[in-house]
Amino acid sequence: MKIFVTGATGFIGSSIVDELLRRGHAVVGLARSDASATKLQAKGAQAHRGSIYDAASIVPVLNEVDGVIHAAFNHDFSTYAQNCLDDGVLLERMAESLRGSGKPLIATSGTTVIAPGHLATEDQPADPAIPRSASERFLRFHEFGVRTGSVRLPPSVHGEGDTAFVPAAIALARRAGVSAYIGDGANRWPAVHRDDAARLFCDVVERGEAGHCFNAVQDEGIPFRVLAEAIGKGLGVPVRSLAPEKAAEHFGWFARFAAADVPASSRLTRERLSWSPRENTLLFDLDSLPSYFDLSVKALSI
């Protein structure tokens, strides 16, 4: 197959491109810059110049490929709700362009589109009150001849090069001189290694059933207290419980993530696609990858 990948030079997208190429697929990656285009071409992929902010730059290439993996997303959390809406609009535009083609259109979503506090599963519909659910509205196009699918990613997609939520928590703990959790820290975070997530994206584009969601989850729910302890160990700083009313003062914008209880299962994904995680766990990576505690690593802004 010839697969078009957005976010093709990003943390997860680059791993997806590598896995597609390993499987013998041809890859066309979206590139916003000459540097991104050069990276893709060096791997043996084709570069298509365009941007997720300009749907007209993307739509023409859809007729030239056999399927699409949409792995790009704007991670500026100061405009998060709008970013989610924009992502949904782009996916609708792509799905409309693929109407009647039978081609796969596989997008990125999050396990957190399910209301918190209980184990999220693949067959639970996204809560429309949660902004990221906008990225799953396009799934209905399976009724119009598009093999739609969504890969739901957990809050932590980890591995070498991670700059997301866990590195943000590390940067915050370094700045504060303490690694904190809220209350008893029993709230849970699921996690997956980026290479396992990449393999799932490829499995779904190859043979995922239309209209379905798939959970890229290895660790169903690591207590945040345990994450805080691993961060404290890595930084050599004390670990402390915070009263809920002190969370915003300590964590800032990260407080809602530090408090989130969002466990998720991948049992149905494993059954339906014979997918099984085989890379390191998040706690193993925190214990073994020096890059997680490297001062030069730039994490999400805190």
Rank of each mutant, 00 (worst) to 15 (best):
Ala37Phe: 01
Leu40Thr: 08
Asp18Thr: 03
Lys39Thr: 07
Gly10Arg: 07
Ala42Thr: 09
Ile12Glu: 12
Arg23Trp: 06
Ser14Phe: 08
His48Val: 12
Val27Gln: 02
Asp34Arg: 09
Gln46Trp: 15
Lys43Gly: 00
Ser15His: 15
Ala31Pro: 10
Gln46Thr: 11
Gly44Glu: 00
Gly24Glu: 04
Leu20Met: 04
Val28Met: 14
Ala26Cys: 12
Ser36Leu: 10
Gly10Trp: 03
Ala37His: 05
Gly44Pro: 11
Ala35Phe: 15
Ala37Arg: 14
His48Ala: 14
Glu19Asn: 10
Leu20Tyr: 04
Leu40Tyr: 03
Ala42Cys: 10
Ser14Val: 09
Gly44Cys: 01
Arg23Gln: 14
Ser14Asp: 08
Thr9Gly: 03
Gly29Pro: 11
Ala26Gln: 15
Val28Ser: 07
His48Cys: 14
Lys39Ala: 10
Leu20Arg: 00
Leu30Thr: 03
Gln46Asn: 11
Gly44Val: 02
Thr38Met: 14
Glu19Trp: 07
Leu30Gln: 08
Ala45Ile: 01
Leu40Asn: 07
Ile12Phe: 12
Gly10Phe: 04
Gly13Ala: 08
Ile12His: 12
Val17Arg: 02
Ser33Glu: 08
Ser36Gln: 12
Ser33Gly: 13
Ala47Ser: 03
Ala47Ile: 00
Gly7Pro: 04
Ser15Cys: 14
Asp34Val: 08
Val17His: 06
Ala26Trp: 13
Ser15Phe: 15
Ala37Gly: 08
Gly13Met: 01
Gly7Thr: 01
Ser15Asn: 15
Ala42Gly: 11
Asp34Cys: 13
Gly10Gln: 06
Ala37Ile: 09
Arg22His: 11
Ala47Lys: 04
Leu21Lys: 05
Ala31Cys: 03
Leu30Met: 10
Ile12Trp: 14
Ala42Trp: 12
Ala35Trp: 13
Ser36Ala: 09
Gly7Lys: 01
Arg22Glu: 10
His48Lys: 14
Leu40Ser: 05
Ile16Arg: 00
Leu21Ser: 05
Ala47Asp: 00
His48Met: 15
His25Lys: 08
Arg32Gln: 13
Asp34Glu: 12
Lys39His: 13
Ile12Thr: 10
Ala31Asn: 01
Val27Ala: 04
Gly24Trp: 07
Gly24Cys: 06
Ala35His: 14
His48Arg: 14
Ala31Met: 09
Phe11Gly: 00
Gln46Phe: 08
Gly13Arg: 07
Leu20Ser: 02
